[in-house]
């Protein structure tokens, strides 16, 4: 077994997250899927850090977490305000910006 397995796992998780974004309609679940994709990216960063023998990957993943935290805060606030005005958390209902 080599560290490549971690990368395969990360690829699988990323794909699952991407499919989740495409098929789920609840905005919160979609958001969670985005988080899953970020986590998959983090796993690759940590694994590459190990393969390359430097800590830069781990630091990068740390930054990703910080950005993810900020993003979640804003994203959830947006979901809240949309829900407040439209009484729905479905991403399909927010489809006014169209032809």
């Amino acid at each position: 077994m080599t560290p490549t397995y971690y990368l395969v796992l990360a690829a699988a998780l990323f794909t699952i997250g991407a499919v989740g974004v495409l098929v789920r309609r609840n905005a919160i679940v979609v958001f969670m899927c985005v988080e899953l994709m970020l986590n998959a990216a983090n796993l690759t960063l940590v694994t590459f850090s190990r393969i390359n023998g430097t800590l830069d990957g781990q630091i990068m993943s740390f930054f990703v977490m910080v950005v993810a935290a900020a993003e979640v805060v804003i994203g959830l606030a947006i979901i809240m305000s949309i829900y407040r005005s439209r009484r729905s958390a479905s991403v399909d209902d927010a489809n006014l910006l169209k032809y």
């Binding site: 974004v21 495409l22 098929v23 991403v91 399909d92 489809n95 006014l96 910006l97 169209k98 032809y99």
Partner: peptide
Amino acid sequence: LRRSQTGFVRSYALSIL
């Protein structure tokens, strides 16, 4: 062509993927 702009964010995500 305009009809492809459905307003459904998931369609757009599909094209991104």
